[in-house]
Nucleic acid binder design. Sequence first.
DNA 1: TGCCTTATCTTTACAGTGACAAGATATCGC
DNA 2: GCGATATCTTGTCACTGTAAAGATAAGGCA
Lengths: 195, 195
Amino acid sequence: MTDKNYHHGDLRTALVKAGRTILERDGLQALTLRACAREAGVSHAAPQHHFRNMADLMSAIAASGFDDFVEALDDHSKNAPDAKGRLIAMGIAYVVFASEHPAIYRVMFGGDAPNSVSEQLESAMLQAWNQLHHAVEAVVGSDQANNDALLVWSVVHGHAMLRAAQCLPPVVDADLALRHSLEVIINGMTLPPPH
Amino acid sequence: MTDKNYHHGDLRTALVKAGRTILERDGLQALTLRACAREAGVSHAAPQHHFRNMADLMSAIAASGFDDFVEALDDHSKNAPDAKGRLIAMGIAYVVFASEHPAIYRVMFGGDAPNSVSEQLESAMLQAWNQLHHAVEAVVGSDQANNDALLVWSVVHGHAMLRAAQCLPPVVDADLALRHSLEVIINGMTLPPPH
DNA sequence: TGCCTTATCTTTACAGTGACAAGATATCGC
DNA sequence: GCGATATCTTGTCACTGTAAAGATAAGGCA
């Protein structure tokens, strides 16, 4: 780390940071390899020594996004009084994160990069999953926790994706509908089946 | 429609068809304007007289996908014995369509093309929404139909997206979990809230 | 200290993309 | 039958991701 040119010091994390800046400022369509390099102040070919290709860089950016995501889920749910409130708060925090950071959210879950799920990304995703799984387990017990956690995950993810893609059907107050959805599925999960 | 060159006859629909062929055969990353032109046997600039830009073409392709989508939902649910069975069948058909045609599904719901929701696409989406809305209304009545329909939509959409993006958490039988999810939310929707 | 190996960054290049402009060709209205 | 118009082609431009080759700094070993 002399002063200027050559041997940036930690270009790898700088590129990830640059990518996140671009996502927040200019959106997903502006996220290119060369744009990240420009943002980081290096030549357009510099990233090749840290990421094999664009998909590899996006995988790292996604993993970085999952770190913040997990933190947001935790922050917004830890103060809830009981297990159900905690689960609802976590679900709402999920959608809020997706609404406030739609670009990185789409990178995280887009699956745009086929064969590029680095183990770093996989681990970050698993951490988020485990967090939700524990919150569900505290409500329904361990028997149905897997299936029910996937249900909760599907609801919030589907709701968030519909919002992000501007596909929400008309005449719906989205925030209210989300809370309604969470309460309905928690009822369905905790009440015994009818017959 | 002479025989060969010039004045293809109906290049607009031919380009949409070409796009769908490419999506099925080569996947989403292969869907480019020039590839569609090649597939349709015209020069790379021919599409400009039928679609203002790539987003416009993708919007038309998405609308075409929604037509098949609506048909699939109808086909797989019309023979169910009762309203609940019909709703469950429709939800499963939704995820099956997304699993069997992941590329066009992502074009339909990707929202990759920001300001390009043609009224044709919007109408096709609305048709799918109305179909689901009616199936839900037959189960829960018209009072909560809007909110509950959005809940069902979120569940199947989220589940389908997680599958398509290879983000399904481990140790889960996805088909079984989907059926479980649908039954749980129908329970939650029809049973009265606990207190 | 001085040199040599290595990692990192730059420069240059290439094929492919979406978009635009200008020219060529066929169809339609009169 | 002829001109206006819609449609298609050719050519071009800036931009992208990726690769190869050259330039520069850092670290290891005499």
